[in-house]
Amino acid sequence: MNKPRLLLALLAMVASLYTVSLVQAQNYPTDDEVNAIAKKLYCPVCPNTPLDVCETQACADWRAQIRDQLAEGWSEEQVMAYFVEQYGERVLAEPERSGFNSLIWILPIVAVALGLFVAVQVLRSWHRAQNTAAESAVDFVPDVPPETLVKIERELREIA
C-alpha cells in the first residue's frame, strides 16, 4: 500500500471506532436502568440488603456486571435469571410464584376468607342469641319507664 491509502485506511478505522464508541456511549446503560433491576434483587452476601443500596465492593461489582450485561443487550428477565442461576433464589426480592412459594400468596387469601367467614358466623350467632335470650337476664333494672329512656337516649345522641 502506498502512503495516502494507508493514511486513508487508518482514518477510516479511527472514524469507525469513534462512531462505534459514540453509539455505545448513547446506548450505555444509565445508572437508573441498572438501579431499576438492582432494586428487584438482594445482595447475595449481605443480610437483607437490596442490591441498589448495598455499599460493599462486591455489590459494586454486581452492579457493574448488570451494566455490562445491559450494554450487551440482555433483557431484564435474562439478567434476573442469570442472578438466580448464579446465586440462588434468595437473591430475588419477590419469590417466584411457583411450587411451594405460591403458598405465600395463597395463604393470606385463605386467612382473610377464613377470618371473614368466622366473623360472619360469630355475628350471626350473636344475633340469634339476642333473639332467643330471655328478656329477664339483666343485672340491674333502672326504674325508669322505657319511653323516658328512649327520649333520654335520643337527646344524648344529639348532644354527642
Partner: peptide
C-alpha cells in the same frame, strides 16, 4: 469454589 462472585473479577 468461588462463592457469590462476578466472573470478571
Amino acid at each position: 469454589v468461588d462463592y457469590v462472585d462476578t466472573e470478571k473479577e
